[in-house]
Structures are given as structure tokens and as C-alpha cells.
């Protein structure tokens, strides 16, 4: 099994710097990080990848059995750490990948030295006192929303992604990637993401952790950020003055700065 090919692993940045592994969340692929990679790459070795089933990964090795639980995704991260023989790497996980990172750090503690959780949520659905922000019906609605975009997805998205005069770096190779995913795979990832409850796993986190939340985030509201911070004693909470669930896109400078501050490598 060629892990680098399987997970479309990209390595860039300072070869002798501390390794930062960037894990994308549900929806898109490693291109989500593109706006903050330059800032990180100056002092760090940056590793990007796509989970099996996303972006440029090898779809032929995707199985519903493995990727219908977060452990399957965490295993992808552990596989990559072993392939690259990483030690004490910084794992930056966006959205659901923040929790996948917690599982990966537990599976391979020597490989992962610290965590950066970008817009994390250990549980999207409300439970008793816990406010995740969504009901089970809301999640069904998202799945329906995914379904309704299947019909036009592959044919409609390709020209959009291709026709991008302002950003020539988004080349031909992105035509079928980024957020375009096999509908059946996307459904499994969505279900696994939004129906997961990893609150109990937070207690296992012992490594230095940065919880990075947005001031306005529909998917991971501030109560959830506070919950995560409270559950991990070794964590630091930073609230970005950003809107939406993807600060690495909407506020890339502030996001990179917060990560570099945490790592002590801010210029």
C-alpha cells in the first residue's frame, strides 16, 4: 500500500522545521489550507493530505466499513505519520478533523506532540445540558441537501473550478477535486461527522492543544469552543474575529498567526 499515493500526500516548506500536519474536514480537501500554507511553510515542514474518499485520494481503497467511523479516518493520519516517520508532529485539524486528531494522538502518542483544533465540535447534536447546535432532524436535512446537489454536482462544478482567471494557481488538476466528492462517499462522511459524539475522548488529550474558534460559527458555536477548552486542561482557547466555519479561508492571516504563536514560531 502506497500511503503517499493513497492519501495524496503533499510535503512542502522548511525541510528541517518542525512538522505541521494539516487535516481537512468534511466537505472539501487539502486545498482548504492553501491560504495559510505559505505562512506556515516559512519555518515548518508542512504535510497536506486528503482522507481516503476525498479530493485526490485513491477512491478504490475506500470502504464504508472503515470510513463510517472516525477511527478509520484517524488511522489514515497514523498511517501517514508512520509512512513519513513523524515524531512529535503538530496536528492541525479542521472541524471534524480536530476530533479525528484527538483519536489519532491517542493511537500514536509518540507521533503527535501537539494539537491545533480549528473550529472543533465534539458533538453536533444537542444532548441534555450540552448544546451542540443541531437536532438529529437538522442532520437529516443536511444529508437531503447533499442529495439534492448530486444531480448537478460533477458536471456543474468542474467548469466553475476550472474557470478561475483570478487564481491561475488553481490549475487544471483541480477540475474534479476540491469539494467534488463521490456522492455515496460524501454521504458516509457526512453521517460519520455529524452523528459522532466524541465528548468523552477529550479527557484523553494530554498534549499541548490550541482550540481555535470563530466569533461567529454556525457549525461550531462559541459554547462548543468553551466546552472543548474546559474539557482539555492542557488547552489554550483563541477566538478569532472571523465569521463562518472556515477561518483558514475567511481569515487566513489571523489563523496562521494564532497557530504560529501557539508553536512559538511566530516571527
Amino acid at each position: 500500500m502506497d500511503i503517499r499515493h493513497r492519501n495524496n500526500v503533499t510535503v512542502t516548506g522548511a525541510a528541517d522545521g518542525q512538522t505541521v500536519l494539516l487535516a481537512h474536514g468534511f466537505g472539501c480537501d487539502q486545498n482548504m489550507w492553501r491560504l495559510i500554507v505559505p505562512a506556515l511553510a516559512r519555518r515548518h515542514r508542512v504535510v497536506l493530505f486528503d482522507y481516503v474518499g476525498s479530493g485526490g485520494s485513491d477512491l478504490s481503497v475506500w470502504t464504508e466499513e472503515r470510513y463510517s467511523q472516525l477511527d478509520g479516518y484517524a488511522q489514515d493520519i497514523v498511517d501517514i505519520c508512520e509512512e513519513l516517520d513523524l515524531e512529535q508532529a503538530v496536528l492541525v485539524g479542521h472541524s471534524v478533523s480536530a476530533m479525528i486528531g484527538v483519536l489519532a494522538a491517542r493511537m500514536a502518542p509518540q507521533r503527535i506532540g501537539s494539537l491545533v483544533m480549528v473550529a472543533p465540535s465534539p458533538c453536533y447534536i444537542d444532548h441534555a445540558d450540552y448544546r451542540g447546535g443541531f437536532t438529529a432532524e437538522d442532520i437529516d436535512e443536511l444529508l437531503a441537501s447533499l442529495e439534492s446537489n448530486y444531480l448537478g454536482w460533477s458536471s456543474a462544478m468542474a467548469p466553475v473550478i476550472m474557470g478561475n482567471p483570478e487564481r491561475p494557481e488553481l490549475g487544471q488538476e483541480l477540475t474534479n477535486s476540491f469539494c467534488a466528492t463521490d456522492p455515496d462517499i460524501a454521504r458516509v462522511f457526512a453521517r460519520t461527522t455529524f452523528l459522532s459524539d466524541s465528548r468523552a475522548d477529550l479527557a484523553d488529550v494530554t498534549v499541548p492543544t490550541l482550540v481555535l474558534e470563530c466569533a461567529q460559527d454556525v457549525i461550531a458555536p462559541r459554547e462548543v469552543g468553551a466546552f472543548v477548552h474546559a474539557a482539555i486542561p492542557s488547552s489554550r482557547l483563541v477566538t478569532l474575529d472571523a465569521t463562518g466555519h472556515c477561518p483558514q479561508l475567511s481569515a487566513p492571516e489571523a489563523t496562521a498567526e494564532a497557530i504560529l504563536d501557539f508553536l512559538g514560531t511566530h516571527p
Binding site: C28, R34, F134, D140
Partner: peptide, 22 residues
């Protein structure tokens, strides 16, 4: 709708930011 919101955050917004149009 809530489903639309989730879709917006996970697909629409990232694509729009990266592509400039959608």
C-alpha cells in the same frame, strides 16, 4: 434551512472563497 446552512458552511462558502464564484 439548517441543512442548507450546513451545506453552505462546508461546501458553498469554501468554494466561493477559493474560486471567487459559484
Amino acid at each position: 434551512t439548517v441543512g442548507g446552512k450546513l451545506y453552505h458552511e462546508t461546501h458553498f462558502e469554501p468554494l466561493l472563497r477559493m474560486q471567487g464564484e459559484l
